[in-house]
Design a protein around this nucleic acid. Structure first.
Length: 424
RNA sequence: GCGAGCGUGGCCAAGUGGUUAAGGCAGUGGUUUGUGGUACCACCAUUCGCGGGUUCAAGUCCCGUCGUUCGCCCCA
């Protein structure tokens, strides 16, 4: 049997209702904040991600789905995240010409070759926001506020916002030196992974889960103490506005995000109801990315949410059920079945959700299914009704039923709709 | 890429080397050949993810493989 590839999965109707709820809620809140949807390709030239995300990162180094185009010349990569593509689009379509700030959002699948785990798939889905063209601290806060609004609207609990500033390139370079000097005497005590990172990416050592390394990291010099005055000022302004908006946060001096393009504000929203993959939303400022990709110097901030993780949380706290039809159509007999199809179509065109039983099985069986469908009423059309072009309407809860002509049903459609919506 | 656990019908499962692989849900047919949600009856795995091995005997033990779960790594 051919089965779905590892790390990919089917989202069946029972689960899709949660996805739809998330997408609807996010879209609603994003629209209210005047963000507009953008759809960019799922694959791009590999160079976009190498340059944008950074060649030294794990995502680029070992997690990308990269292949050569049929022509054999172009190296192509399935997007591992959304920001690089949006930034590319911003430059290519000269969106800056349309005025100061672009407020964009996107949703769709992303691809990373990783070991699948709860809340981590090889094909996974994100909803993301990119606010491009403003370097104001206010932009950072607005982006974060929209994210927290979405999570709040979904009714999610036990979330916490962690925030830090990684400053600008110069700040980070300076901090790197300071940190290395501090770590030098502890070199032998660090865990193996962290020792590897000393050269490659010392900032990530702060994030280690190894107990001894964590103890060492506890007392390490903090990056915010290495920030330039302007970087510090930016960060303080962000924190102040978060407080003004009553958005709770905690400064996490160890928070360093994994993609190279982040500058200044970095943040994560985590849930304590998930396992190791606890981050439901992550993002930050990326003032250097657009210039790095060949555009003009353009400040920007963005974030992405992992839809699969939101679905897990939502399933734990709410029952969302698949939409039931308004009417279930029971029919049997050649003439009757033909008339049922016609009438069902007309009712659908009038705005009712009608499920037509196609089984042709005994009436008893069809009624049983009518029950399970969750419909409030069913229509019954058999040989007798077909003869007189009538139909029987039966209310499933009361068992009450009445026969009328098919024309009468359509004429009385508004009262029928009202009665159905009252019973749903 | 590394470590550990798990894998019995569509779903949830019992089963801890001995002969016909419990049970529940769902499904199908019937009691009720045109009226449901209840009840009752019947049917529904030549087979235990797949391949190999040990044994007189394997769902049960061993090896491999695939899948899955949890953790590391990474990240949303």
């Amino acid at each position: 049997m051919i089965q779905a590839l590892r790390g990919t999965r089917d989202i069946l109707p029972e689960e899709i209702v949660y996805w739809q709820l998330i997408e609807r809620t996010a879209k609603d809140i994003l629209s209210k904040a005047a963000f507009q949807e953008i759809r960019v390709p799922i694959f791009e030239q590999t160079a976009l991600f190498e340059r944008g995300i950074g060649e030294a990162t794990d995502v680029v180094g070992k997690e990308m789905y990269t292949f050569t185009s049929r022509g054999g010349k172009t190296s192509i990569t399935l997007r591992p995240e959304g920001t690089a593509g949006v930034a590319r689009s911003y430059i290519q379509n000269k969106l800056q010409a349309q005025g100061g700030v672009q407020r964009l959002w996107y949703t769709g699948p992303m691809f990373r070759y990783e070991r699948p785990q709860a809340g981590r798939q090889r094909q996974f889905h994100q909803i993301g926001l990119e606010l491009i063209g403003s370097n104001a601290p206010r932009a950072d806060v607005e982006a974060i506020a929209v994210a927290t609004d979405i999570l709040k609207a979904l009714g999610l609990k036990n979330l916490s916002l962690a925030i830090n500033s990684v400053g600008r390139g110069e700040d980070r370079q300076k901090y790197r030196e300071t940190l290395l000097t501090y770590l030098e005497p502890y070199k032998e005590e660090l865990d193996a992974d962290s020792r590897d990172r000393l050269e490659r990416n010392p900032l990530r050592i702060l994030d280690s889960k190894d107990q001894r390394t964590q103890e060492i990291a506890q007392d390490a010099p903090k990056i915010i103490d290495s920030l330039s005055d302007s970087s510090k000022k930016h960060f303080d302004a962000v924190l102040q506005m978060l407080t003004d908006l009553e958005i709770a946060y905690q400064i996490d001096h160890c928070l360093v995000r994994g993609l190279d393009y982040y500058t200044h504000t970095a943040f994560e929203i985590k849930s304590s109801d998930l396992g190791a993959q606890a981050t439901v939303c992550g993002g930050g400022r990326y003032d250097g990315l657009i210039a790095e990709l060949g555009g003009a110097e353009t400040p920007a901030i963005g974030w992405a949410m992992g839809i699969e993780r939101l679905v897990i949380l939502l399933q734990e706290l709410a029952q969302v059920s698949v939409d039931a039809p308004d009417l279930y159509f029971v029919s049997r007999g050649e003439q009757a079945e033909a008339q049922a199809l016609t009438l069902a179509q007309k009712l659908r065109q009038s705005g009712l959700a009608v499920e037509l039983d196609l089984s042709g099985s005994a009436f008893g069986k069809q009624f049983k299914r009518a029950d399970r469908s969750g419909a409030v009423a069913c229509l019954v059309l058999g040989d007798a009704e077909a003869e007189t072009r009538s139909v029987n309407l039966k209310w499933l809860a009361s068992g009450e039923q009445s026969t009328m002509t098919q024309t009468e049903v359509l004429q009385g459609i508004e009262t029928l709709k009202n009665k159905i919506s009252a019973l749903h």
